[in-house]
Simulated assay, not measured.
Amino acid sequence: MSSDSSPPSPGPEENADTENPKKIPAREYGPWELRQVLLARTNELQALLDDRWRTHGKDRNDLLDKAKDELNSARSVLSHAHKRKRAASHIAVGQIHVDTAHNLLLRLSGPEEIASMMPGVLASVREALPAEDPRRVAVERISRSPAKITDSERESLLDAVSVARHVRIQKTLRVRSFVNIVRWVAGGLAVGVVLVAVLGWFFDDTVPLCFSPDRVSGAEEYHVVCPTRSSPDAKAKRVDASLATTTAPADYLAVEFIGLVAAGIAAATTIRRIGGTAEPYNVPFALALLKLPMGALTAVLGLLLMRGGFVPGLTALDSSAQIISWAIIFGYAQQIFTRLVDTQARNVLAGASGSATPTRPPPPKPSNQAD
């Protein structure tokens, strides 16, 4: 702060969205509501800093300048003009700057002001730190008499708040890492789905998804059934010749599409159990992206296993409708392989939701016994 005659004012970054409306892109990165919450929080902290400056903060201009810089950095990161907004990371970075500004506000506050903010501080520390953590124990002890806080207790309080907010950011970054891993795996599976469809289109008779029920019964002439069509008459003397005339380039494509639709139904069911999330990273959407290509591949692989006799008694499918029905079953069955991913997603969201850890019960008071 350059002078002592005026309170700190918002930087030019605060109005970055409104001064250049033509530069605002049409796409919003991350939840728009979370972005507005953080911007509103910066305005609230700015007003509180102005109040601290007018009351007893004129001798701590260095801290006021740092807090002002943090708020301006938060506004700059959250503005549409900022370039690093991929995967909603700008919301997490903006939260870091806002938390730092709030820590500086606590350092500028007196005992009475800290006492009024103590419930929120205590809840934040209990949310992030375990009951046996010494910093949480110290904060709980300070909260019993916040009006008599000393300088050393203030430092303990600030250290606990900083660690608690660091833990919260770590949980958010853990959600981001999980979402990125799921998306990369889903992208790799999607590439595999495309390659299988292309190879099946150009080399449809190499590994056909067709069945010959007459071959199981030992007939001399064979009838071939494929996903999209079947041989009209059982006139072929050799299975290979009948396959060559019956297979179609669209066989693999049809099976993959059916498996993808079945996986989409399974994904909808899973999302219903997981529910929504307030994190800037969309975990349910990433899980749905993983299940769709997985369902397309499991439908193809399941039919190949049946054709190879891996499932006894299920090698003589005699109609295209039966092949499509099994493709639906195998596409939905991808849930068997992605169930562990769903469980991990629920664990990650539960850890990031900030469930408060149990509070240590106070020691029992000794009873007064009569002499």
Rank of each mutant, 00 (worst) to 15 (best):
303 L>D: 08
183 R>N: 06
133 D>L: 12
26 A>S: 15
99 D>P: 09
84 R>L: 06
81 A>S: 15
188 G>A: 08
332 Y>N: 06
263 A>F: 00
60 R>D: 15
76 S>E: 08
259 G>N: 11
20 N>P: 00
106 L>N: 09
188 G>F: 15
51 D>W: 03
132 E>R: 02
363 P>S: 11
124 S>G: 07
370 A>H: 15
10 P>L: 11
145 S>W: 06
229 R>W: 05
290 L>C: 00
11 G>S: 08
169 I>N: 01
340 L>M: 13
232 P>N: 02
149 I>L: 14
281 Y>C: 03
24 I>P: 02
334 Q>I: 10
317 L>C: 10
56 H>V: 06
109 S>R: 02
312 P>G: 03
280 P>Y: 10
108 L>H: 14
207 V>L: 12
64 L>D: 01
257 F>M: 14
300 V>I: 09
95 Q>M: 12
53 W>V: 09
249 P>W: 15
361 P>F: 10
222 Y>D: 04
212 S>F: 01
336 I>S: 14
361 P>K: 09
199 L>S: 02
288 A>E: 01
242 S>A: 11
196 V>C: 05
224 V>N: 04
63 L>E: 07
160 A>P: 12
49 L>V: 03
244 A>Q: 01
305 L>N: 10
293 P>D: 11
93 V>I: 09
323 I>T: 08
271 I>G: 03
249 P>F: 14
350 A>V: 06
251 D>M: 13
346 R>S: 03
334 Q>S: 15
282 N>Y: 07
209 L>K: 10
367 S>A: 14
28 E>F: 02
98 V>M: 11
187 G>I: 03
215 R>I: 06
138 A>M: 14
